[in-house]
């Protein structure tokens, strides 16, 4: 067994770190969009708008039921063949679109479960003071559901950050893409992928710390 080329790894760290913004950018944009879409999907699943509900059930089923990589290929390589106006779609856009749709399906299910878990008395109280359905959702039900759903949602965000690595298959040079290129020219695959693995790991650990703070602040209304 050969020793690790530590000097090469140290050199590689700033190179890969240079691609952290693009990875975080894709993940953050996808998270914001997925969360917004997931809330809409979840509320629809609870309220059950006729006809629209079938579409939502179908949407969630499809995007949970097929691999993320397949979805990304479908958007990036497949769709432009059918919808000609999409020929301009770039890798980053396709990655954000894929991650958004994929994770919104998962998030919708956990948000829906959290909404239905909010005590019935909260719905009745909101109705009794004359709130509309939308006011009740926004002001009373969703904030309480957020507290229940947040640990799961942060987990999905962690998954999403790691999922951005698939964007390199769409020709996007993010952290994984950069590591791949470096490894291909140096032939030091183990070193290159170990560096990128550790950087992902550290990012996720930082996020987990943030999760703890988020939970503390969401729990403040419930602490005795």
């Amino acid at each position: 067994m050969q020793g690790l080329d530590l000097y090469y790894m140290l050199e590689l760290v700033p190179v890969i770190l240079g691609y952290v913004p693009i990875t975080i950018g894709i993940a953050a944009a996808s998270m914001v969009l997925a969360l917004a879409l997931a809330v809409l999907l979840a509320v629809e699943r609870v309220v059950k708008v006729p006809v629209l509900d079938w579409f939502v059930v179908f949407f969630i089923s499809f995007f949970r039921g097929t691999p993320l990589l397949v979805q990304l290929f479908l958007f990036y390589y497949g769709l432009p063949q059918v919808l000609s106006f999409l020929t301009q779609i770039n890798g980053v856009t396709a990655a954000i679109l894929g991650l958004t749709l994929h994770f919104s399906a998962y998030m919708a299910e956990s948000i829906r479960a959290a909404i239905t878990g909010v005590d019935r008395s909260q719905w009745e109280a909101a109705h009794s003071v004359g709130m509309t359905q939308a006011q009740m959702m926004r002001r009373i039900i969703l904030p309480q559901a957020a507290r229940v759903a947040s640990p799961t949602l942060v987990n999905y965000f962690i998954d999403m950050i790691k999922g951005t690595s698939l964007a390199f298959t769409l020709g996007v040079t993010e952290m994984m893409g950069a590591a791949q290129k470096e490894a291909a020219s140096s032939f030091l695959y183990f070193e290159a992928f170990l560096v990128v693995a550790v950087i992902y790991w550290i990012m996720v650990e930082i996020l987990s710390q943030g999760q703890k703070r988020l939970e503390t602040s969401l729990n403040k209304a419930y602490a005795r």
Binding site: G130, Q144, A221
Partner: peptide, 21 residues
């Protein structure tokens, strides 16, 4: 909605909004 806005309800189990002071 109009009915709910012209009446006020006091619940047996209080039903205060749990996320509000």
């Amino acid at each position: 909605l109009s009915l709910q806005r012209s009446t006020a309800f006091v619940f047996q189990n209080y039903a205060l909004f749990a996320n509000k002071t």
